[in-house]
Amino acid sequence: MQLTTAITALALLVPTRLLAAGWPWNKPPDQVTANCLVEPAQVEQGAAVRLRARVEAADTRKHKLAYVWSGNGGQIFGTGAEVELDASRLNPGVYSVAAGVQDAYKNRADCVAHFQVQLPANPLTARCTIEPGEAEAGTTVRVKAEAADQRGQTLRYRWFTNGGVLLPEGAEAALQTAGLAPGQYSITSRVDDEWGHATDCSATLRIILPPPPPIPPELAILAQIIFPRNGAQLGASERQQLQKVLERMQQDSGGIVSIESYAAPDEISPQKLAEARAEAVKHLLMEQGVSESRVHTTVGLGGRLGGVRNRTLDVIWIPEGMEY
Rank of each mutant, 00 (worst) to 15 (best):
R61Y: 15
V97I: 15
S202E: 13
K272N: 11
N162A: 03
Q116S: 11
W23I: 14
G179L: 03
G255N: 03
K27P: 03
G183H: 01
Q116D: 09
A198G: 10
A278S: 09
A57I: 09
A9P: 01
C36L: 14
R190C: 04
R239Y: 03
A9N: 09
D193E: 09
V112G: 00
I187Q: 00
K282V: 04
T177D: 09
T5D: 13
A264G: 06
Y324W: 11
G152K: 12
I318T: 12
L209E: 15
P210A: 15
K62G: 11
V117R: 04
V97E: 02
T60Y: 01
R311P: 01
V83N: 02
C201H: 05
V143M: 07
P168L: 02
D200C: 06
S96C: 02
D200T: 13
V117I: 15
R311D: 02
G196L: 08
S253Y: 01
Q116G: 00
T297E: 05
V290G: 07
E279C: 08
I318S: 11
R311L: 04
R248E: 12
A6N: 14
P319H: 02
R61Q: 13
E260Q: 12
F160L: 06
K272G: 05
A126T: 05
G80C: 10
R61G: 02
P29T: 09
